[in-house]
Simulated assay, not measured.
Amino acid sequence: MSRRSLHTPAPDAAALRARLDRARDAASDAGTDALLIAPGSDLRYLIGQAVGSFERLTALVVPASGAAPALVLPKLEAPGYTDVPTDDLGVDVLTWVDGDDPYALVAGRLGKPGRVAVSDTMAALHVLGLRDAIGSAEQTLAGPVIRELRMRKDAAEIAALRTAGAAIDRVHARMGEWLRPGRTEAEVGADIAAAIVAEGHTEAEFVIVGSGPNGASPHHDVSGRVIENGDVVVIDIGGPIAEGYNSDSTRTYAVGQPRDADVAGTYEVLRRAQRAAVEAVRPGATAQDIDAAARTIIAEAGFGEYFIHRTGHGIGLDVHEEPYIVGGNDLVLEPGMAFSVEPGIYQPGRWGARIEDIVVVTSDGMEPLNNRPHELVVLGS
């Protein structure tokens, strides 16, 4: 009967109240009568924490105007929200028990809306239950509204991301303790996961150890493959710190001298591409400009077909969030936007490489949140 809590140290009440006010304004500007926010990172952003609701509805009802926001939740889940300063936030708490109709409770709070926006990740069970309860109201996604707030990090959020970046850098600095011939990817991954927690994270959200040909799969996990001398190994790792904000950093290593003669030259192309993309980050540039800065160098060197993903993704309370650094995205970068810059070159059946840093757009450029060397690190040589 346990429920995983996304309980983290929350911003102060004034900061949360300001977020709620901005959410109401954003909903109004979008022509939406109310936001219906399910447990998850959006709810954590707005009130400081969230507890999973599963088959029982929990939702923050945020009217664009009129009635105060209301947190609708099962009475049995209420203890998980006792630290939320609802009085200071001006949020009413409406509880229900098994046998009640929570969807009717939400509908009663809304009156007769013409358009409501539901969380992108709200379970279909609840989306359909709310649809039936609110009748003819149009349902849209809340993501386009909330992302406009979450893309622009405030000073406290940037400080948390800075702390997370330094913590994951400390893990990369220790890679020589674990990465050596004769060990499996899974064995190395387990050591890395423990170190991620030891160095200041609450958990290891993901650990990729892609050795040899497995490094050519960008989202490889770990496997029973035994690491061999001469392997190139992609290590992509990250997780949340106590405040809920995430790290995400990739470095590529060689276990002994690389066996393939083309590693040094190809890796240098990647290093130049990543550096060019990072240096292109500034207010006024577009997301697609950053992608193009990396992609052009890789393509001109003849490796364009081996760069098979976007150059980056936003990061914060989620590992992947807006803005996405990809061709076709003409979003203009603004101070406070935080995202990865992570081009890669992947040669199927042979080896792959990726370099990833998190950067934050500043008033006149960018701040890197990862500061480990970008050169190919040769271990055991």
Results as ranks from 00 to 15, higher is better:
V51F: 06
V93Y: 06
M366Y: 14
G327S: 13
Q288R: 10
L125D: 04
M337Y: 09
G210F: 01
G52V: 04
V127M: 08
T286N: 05
E300I: 07
V127A: 12
G256Q: 04
R22D: 06
F307T: 09
I192H: 03
T311Q: 12
A15G: 10
Q274L: 05
A254C: 03
V361H: 04
L36A: 07
Y324I: 11
V207A: 10
T296E: 09
Y306G: 02
G265A: 15
R4S: 15
A242W: 02
G135R: 02
S223N: 04
L331W: 10
V319N: 07
P113Q: 03
Y346H: 13
D364L: 00
N214P: 00
F307N: 14
M151R: 13
G328Y: 01
H309R: 15
T296R: 11
G129R: 03
L110V: 00
T32P: 12
E367L: 15
V278A: 00
G302M: 10
G212H: 01
Q139S: 03
I297Y: 00
D33K: 00
P63D: 04
W96Q: 09
L73M: 10
A204P: 09
A216R: 10
A293D: 00
L35T: 02
D248W: 14
A193P: 01
D262Q: 06
M151N: 02
P63F: 06
V222E: 05
G215C: 05
L57M: 10
P74E: 07
V319S: 13
L73I: 13
N371A: 15
V84G: 04
L94C: 15
L20Y: 01
V62H: 11
V197E: 11
I192M: 05
A193C: 01
D357E: 13
R56L: 14
R271H: 05
A59K: 04
A204N: 10
A142G: 09
G108R: 12
L105I: 15
D169V: 13
V360S: 07
P113D: 03
V118S: 01
R310W: 13
G129D: 05
I358C: 11
E375W: 04
S211A: 15
H201G: 03
D100K: 00
L94A: 15
